[in-house]
Amino acid sequence: KELVLVLYDYQEKSPREVTVKKGDILTLLNSTNKDWWKVEVDDRQGFIPAAYLKKL
């Protein structure tokens, strides 16, 4: 499984997104879309802008 580091706080703006904090380490589920990556946060799955994440 691939992990990503959150570079900036992000507040979800729709039900398909998730809220994260800078410094969080998340499981990356899908990065095929270059703009929005799907991650897992506390048993929730959702999207975050790829620019907010860095692969570890």
Results as ranks from 00 to 15, higher is better:
L5V: 11
V20T: 04
L53I: 07
R44W: 10
P15M: 08
K22L: 05
V18D: 00
E17W: 04
Q11P: 06
N30I: 07
S31V: 06
D42W: 11
L3Y: 15
R16M: 13
L29D: 01
T32H: 13
V18K: 02
L29S: 03
V39K: 00
A51Q: 11
G23A: 03
D9M: 03
G46T: 07
R44A: 06
P49W: 04
V4A: 09
Q11A: 11
K1L: 14
K54E: 08
K55A: 07
W36L: 05
V39H: 00
V41A: 11
D35C: 13
P49V: 02
E17N: 06
Q45F: 08
F47E: 04
D43E: 13
V4F: 04
T32C: 13
K13D: 06
W36Y: 10
W36G: 02
D24K: 07
L5Q: 08
P49N: 04
K38V: 12
T19H: 04
D42C: 12
F47N: 04
L3F: 15
W37I: 02
E12N: 07
G23C: 08
Y8P: 00
T32F: 10
R16S: 13
Y52P: 01
K22D: 02
Q45V: 13
T19L: 02
V6T: 03
Q11M: 11
D43W: 09
A51C: 14
V6W: 01
T19G: 05
W37P: 01
W37D: 00
A50M: 06
K13V: 08
L28N: 01
D35H: 15
L29V: 13
Y52K: 05
E40P: 00
S14F: 07
L29W: 05
L26Q: 02
D9G: 06
K21C: 11
D35A: 15
L26A: 09
Y10T: 01
N33E: 09
D43Q: 14
R16A: 13
N30A: 10
A51G: 11
A51F: 12
V6I: 04
V20A: 12
D42G: 15
L26T: 02
W36D: 02
R44I: 08
K13R: 14
L7R: 06
L5P: 00
D42P: 08
E2H: 12
S31A: 13
Y10I: 01
K38C: 12
R44V: 07
Y52I: 14
I48S: 03
S31I: 06
K21F: 12
K34H: 13
K21W: 14
G46Q: 05
E40L: 11
V20I: 05
K38S: 09
K22I: 05
N33G: 09
D43F: 11
K22A: 13
F47S: 03
L5S: 04
E40Q: 15
D42T: 09
W37A: 03
E40M: 11
G46W: 07
L53N: 01
D9V: 02
K54I: 12
Y52Q: 04
I48G: 01
D42E: 11
L7F: 02
D35G: 10
K34M: 11
L56P: 02
K54H: 11
T19V: 03
N30C: 11
G23S: 03
V41Y: 09
R16N: 14
K38G: 05
Y10Q: 01
Y52L: 09
V39M: 01
L29K: 05
V39R: 00
V20P: 00
E12C: 13
V4P: 00
V4M: 03
T32A: 13
D43S: 13
K54N: 06
T19A: 05
Y8T: 08
S31Q: 08
Y8H: 14
E40I: 11
L7I: 08
Y10M: 01
L53F: 03
F47D: 04
V6F: 01
L3G: 03
E2S: 13
P49T: 01
I48P: 00
P15K: 10
R16H: 13
K55V: 12
G23R: 02
K13Y: 05
V6P: 00
V4L: 04
G23M: 03
E17F: 05
N30T: 08
S14Q: 08
A51S: 15
Q11I: 14
E17D: 05
S31E: 12
Y52T: 07
L53D: 00
Q45L: 07
V6N: 00
L28F: 03
K38L: 15
L53V: 14
T32D: 14
K22Q: 10
D35P: 03
Y10S: 01
K22V: 06
V39L: 04
E2M: 13
G23N: 07
G46D: 02
W36P: 00
L7Q: 04
G23F: 05
A51K: 14
K38H: 10
K13A: 12
D35V: 15
L56G: 02
L28V: 06
R44S: 05
L53M: 05
